[in-house]
Write a protein that binds this DNA or RNA. Sequence first.
DNA 1: GGATGAATACTCGGATATTTATTGTCCGAGTCATCCTGG
DNA 2: CCAGGATGACTCGGACAATAAATATCCGAGTATTCATCC
Lengths: 168, 168
Amino acid sequence: MKLSEGVEWGLHCASVLAGLPPGATLPTRSLAELHGLSETYLSKHLQALTNARIIESVPGPRGGYRLMRSPEEITLLEIVEAIDGREPLFRCTEIRQRGPLARGPQAYRRPCGIHVAMARAEQAWREALHSQTLADIVAHYVQDVDLQQRQRQEQWVAGRMRRASWQP
Amino acid sequence: MKLSEGVEWGLHCASVLAGLPPGATLPTRSLAELHGLSETYLSKHLQALTNARIIESVPGPRGGYRLMRSPEEITLLEIVEAIDGREPLFRCTEIRQRGPLARGPQAYRRPCGIHVAMARAEQAWREALHSQTLADIVAHYVQDVDLQQRQRQEQWVAGRMRRASWQP
DNA sequence: GGATGAATACTCGGATATTTATTGTCCGAGTCATCCTGG
DNA sequence: CCAGGATGACTCGGACAATAAATATCCGAGTATTCATCC
């Protein structure tokens, strides 16, 4: 089992968008080029983030993507679920209800113990993701990466971003 | 993303094996029949559990599988990792090192912030799985399922299990 | 009758197909900026 | 010189292939049992 590679892409792209001035956008092309990714495939994942109301798209020339909310209000869980889906990691198929000893459905009203145990672990994972926001990622980035490299990226992005014609 | 269906199978089968008398075994055929599963495919997952030293196999007629340790010493994490693999859920492919702004490898000695955040959540998941053992599952089962159904399964299993010819 | 041997039936083990999900690509719909034309 | 409109280029959006992984299956290797035979 593994998470979709698109989760990594989405997280990095969202972090970059978090660094833009308010209202400004960055097109898929630039996001893909910055990270050395396939532009068309990244587009697919950005669509998922758009459908999840995490980023929003501005169509047409001078268009692109931007965050729909402030980085403090976007949790990592949202991004992971938007791209990788909201289905649980562990899916109980109720095999206890199969086989020669199976009873009727009314005998299985209480949840399967294995299902409960796996759901408990999954809940811990989701809570850990929910407790971290894009702002934390950005803060870590600012603290961890040297100033020169940050400025290089800032300039590179500034040269390709599109300023909002109308402020939201 | 989803966990392998075999994880569910392995957990249920391990729970059944936990209820056997010391040294007794149960063959793949019976485990598969009890849960209504494909015998041959279940065999594949039981092999994985065997390679992980969680269960052990007794070959030949009157052979089968049994736990290699007591249920208290077998964590759910072990079973999940044995069947689904030990690779991390989130694999950082270091896309920060790609693209036009990439520096040499020495500039990326500190781990990626996104990688750290995802690993933190994954660690919470693994710890939750590590803190629960097969004994907990069995205890939940005893407390949750009515006596009659438990006795039915006990009898069914007793009629197909093989007692150890030599005690370990 | 007891012991020995080969045959046998049943088990696990790994190598091999099939299906599903993920990854990757393409072309069309929509939109804003630009350019040209006319007043 | 200014306003208006058609043009055009660039963007996102969803439908369409290629690849990788999970699912499912089959046949071979090994072993304790069992039965027949011989002493």
